[in-house]
Design a protein around this nucleic acid. Sequence first.
DNA 1: CGAATCGTTGATTCAACTCAACGCGAGTGG
DNA 2: CCACTCGCGTTGAGTTGAATCAACGATTCG
Lengths: 249, 249
Amino acid sequence: MAHSGSIVLTPLAERLGRGAPLDAMAVAAVMSMPHVVRNFEPGQYLLREGDRPQFCTFVLSGFTFRHKFVGDGGRQIVSIHIPGDFIDLQNVLLDESDHNIQALTVAAVAQIDIDVVVDLAFAHPSLGRALWRESLIEASIFREWVANIGRRDARSRTAHLLCELAMRREAAGLGARATFELPMTQEQLGDALGLTAVHINRTLKTLHDEGLIARSKRSVSVADWGKLRDAADFTSGYLHLRGSANLNA
Amino acid sequence: MAHSGSIVLTPLAERLGRGAPLDAMAVAAVMSMPHVVRNFEPGQYLLREGDRPQFCTFVLSGFTFRHKFVGDGGRQIVSIHIPGDFIDLQNVLLDESDHNIQALTVAAVAQIDIDVVVDLAFAHPSLGRALWRESLIEASIFREWVANIGRRDARSRTAHLLCELAMRREAAGLGARATFELPMTQEQLGDALGLTAVHINRTLKTLHDEGLIARSKRSVSVADWGKLRDAADFTSGYLHLRGSANLNA
DNA sequence: CGAATCGTTGATTCAACTCAACGCGAGTGG
DNA sequence: CCACTCGCGTTGAGTTGAATCAACGATTCG
């Protein structure tokens, strides 16, 4: 099941070169990392809180998300991953996972042994910088989520998540920001935004009625990017998209 | 103003060896990093959003905090730093700061050039791992804050912050978790917890009346650790304190 | 067709916010 | 030394944004 120089890891090499170019040796090293491609069903766990992480996971297709449970049975989604994200860098040097990772949709991922990733990071400084940088960008997104949940009302907060996903999709080359599929239930959106499913429903309705978004089934379209961005108080700086697609948000 | 082998950086070397021991060369490298000791007054900025970060900052004494502004003038504090924290690892590979860092109290810090830190990280893998790991632990704390603000009510949320600070203080060797000074105004606590100052006041009063904490001026004591921890739904796993003081929380 | 899941809507409740007033101690300046 | 201000903490009264509770549609799937 392990491959060498597989085409599967090409997008990973590209992604890691997003901030600053990798040198040729580093690219070759990335491409030849032994890996396993695995498929997950919606709801299936990739990692559970308390587990000792063994793999770094690169999302090939589909969505995954990271969440934590709190005492009263509640759940908080702390990040959402789209194709092209290299998840579990967060666990790379930590002994025990502090969160769960679950497939949101049918998802295909490439898993690479953590030790391989870390060893290569220090063998190839340009790669090491790229990996470390990716993990810092994720941390920056966490900070923005703290601010979003802590200090914005339901309407702004919801709009902000939509803007973020639209922007990240676009930067990852998955299509224009105007329309995208958002395969999350309102329950899940609530868990990501610190709101209830019922209130998400009402908030989406409001955004729809105001002409900021359009909805059909599980897909969301941005009807008016400018207005949505303003409603969201969204600026893309925290995504640190230097070198990626356009930044005009 | 630059020193070599200064005793100032001894605690930094110790801190970085907390997860896994640094090798002797790495310790020597840390101790001899050129640095500048600077003092800040309460409220003074160490870094502003939009700035290009130049230094890594090690907190020698006093408190600092990190925050972001949102559109309506609100502010969200996203982390609080105590002596022994190596802040601004978060900015180490990012071009432009997405947040502000401000002194909470009178604070003394040692500042080290970012390039020096990054170069040493890749020259000494044991050091590189320790630095990367520190930044991942901070990210883990951000995730817990997302969950705390998103899914816990005011009482639990406030108790949780107190538990976290008590625990981190203890792990940093700053004294027992029972009593500690919390030099934050209620306004600032509100900004850290996504609440208003008025509600913080009422919440602290509740915790006091219930016998979980004691207060005098700006200092908080934990009156009953077990009850406070239970109220907070606090477990220390997310702090990843492997190798530090005791973990029985 | 029935079961299950998810979305929608209304009625009601409640946790947290807002507004406002006042207390209090630490400066500070006349 | 007192009067004044200023920042912060405290408390009450009233408001509101979001939660809760509950019912009912819509869609999918075996």
